[in-house]
Amino acid sequence: MVPTEYYIVLSAALFVIGAAGVLTRRSAILMFLSIELMLNAGNVALAAFARQWSSAGMQTALSGQSAVFIVLAIAAAEVAIGLGILVAIFRHRASTEVDELSEVRY
């Protein structure tokens, strides 16, 4: 059995890569992809902790997996809304570069 720490390290690495993507990408679509990476990093950590708890014989061993389920639903809703906003912006501006979308900055 692979120790839980290894999964946490993998999750942290995924989260850092996703965060770097959000900070460096210019296109909003690619920022969304990186956000998906970060959500998945959190999910991996939750599933790893769920296995840790169930191997420790805790009563609420499946809390982590239930949380992953809810995060998945949230990710789906977030993607639908976010891409809808992107399509709406693209109709007005013919661009999804976040640097150009600065009307509401001040």
């Binding site: 993998l10 890569i17 996703g18 770097a20 460096t24 690619l30 992809l33 990186s34």
Partner: peptide, 10 residues
């Protein structure tokens, strides 16, 4: 595999 895919995304 996971990290390679993630780097590809970024």
């Amino acid at each position: 595999l996971t990290l390679a895919g993630a780097l590809g995304v970024v």
